[in-house]
Nucleic acid binder design. Structure first.
Lengths: 200, 200
DNA sequence: CCATAATCTGAACATTATTCAGATCACTAA
DNA sequence: TTAGTGATCTGAATAATGTTCAGATTATGG
């Protein structure tokens, strides 16, 4: 795969570490995580292939860097999506619950290769760090609490809320992306999830 | 990566196509789907690298062959796991429902790299072929029908059963494999799934 | 302004996927 | 049995890749 070399004014790039990640994201988006080439990334930035090794010990490390960047971006995007439905009333709270899943699905649909990078075994999480610390998990927790608070969801079903909602949305996105379920299944899933969790 | 060459008696291998798949599975299991080397596969079989091109037009094609093989194996494994709980009574039927998910999870835990091959974007399904034709989907459908028949699950929740059960198990396995959820979450999920689907 | 450290280059090496001309073998027809 | 034909596999070649390292270039602090 040949990539056009980009010219550069100074010998030093200035912000190569960040540029490498940005460029890698661009190429992974286009060619998939398993087809990322370090040389192509360097070439895009008009930099020699070995320059990258000053910031990342190897290709895997760069990919992990990309993963961290994307996880943060994904969480931020989910937080922002909630702002569309402010308020403590039942309707708004239910909308927020749906919107979390939808935002996740929409992002993954637009960026299937980036989603694959995050969950296809290219960057596994550090063991020992609990998922409770995960910001996106906290968002879901909070929204479920609010559902119970405003009486839109029975307390009895609350304890299983996070895991059931999180896993089913994750699974639906995966299966739809890989062609095992039609896109239309996603709204069906949200319907079923609400019904099963007693959200009404 | 250097692999020991295996000797061969005859010039013709005899069953190279199948052997290539078997050998590829072995290496993917060990080194992950993104680290499969055609040359290593050939070397394992004591065959020249170019021999593979008589059966597969390229590496991707071999990987797809592996995927088909594994999907069939996975379905067969799930079917067999149901035989452990025969009978139409409530207890047996509920056990079968749980066992489908558990068998899936157990397989993925033992073979994380093979699971990643199947759902990490390495072999997407042919569009146009509906998931209804999928054998593993049919197994789940049948088991859910049996749950309703024996009165262990309300009819009202039945329509969402497949998608909810399938996606949540799929998602749980993915998230646990990539370190976003602890292993113990899986049994929690099954509990929650049963509670939410009204299985009792 | 100089010395030192940070940053980047260039050339090298081993490994990879892929191609293709030709060697080897199995099998059929005479 | 034997010649020939097509299937099967080899060997060598090419282009691309990750990675290393000695050295060139530049920024920076005294």
């Amino acid at each position: 795969m040949s990539v056009a070399r980009v010219s550069r004014t100074s010998y030093h790039h200035g912000n190569l570490e960040e540029a490498l990640i940005t460029s890698a994201i661009k190429l992974i988006r286009k060619h998939g995580p398993d087809n990322l080439s370090l040389r192509a990334v360097a070439s895009e930035l008009g930099v020699s292939p070995s320059a990258a090794y000053h910031y990342f010990p190897d290709k895997d490390s760069l990919i992990h860097g990309v993963g961290d960047h994307l996880f943060a971006e994904l969480t931020q995007m989910m937080e922002k999506s909630l702002e569309k439905f402010p308020g403590k009333n039942i309707k708004a709270t239910k909308s927020r619950f749906r919107e979390i899943g939808r935002a996740y699905f929409t992002w993954a649909s637009k960026e299937p290769n980036l989603f694959r990078l995050l969950f296809g075994g290219f960057c596994s999480m550090d063991r020992g760090k609990s998922h409770k610390e995960d910001s996106s998990f906290k968002i879901l927790e909070k929204t479920l609490d609010e559902l119970v608070e405003c009486g839109a969801m029975p307390k009895k079903l609350r304890p299983y809320g996070e895991v059931l909602a999180w896993t089913s949305v994750q699974g639906a996105v995966t299966l739809i992306l890989e062609g095992h379920l039609p896109k239309s299944s996603f709204e069906d899933l949200l319907d079923g999830l609400e019904l099963a969790l007693g959200v009404r």
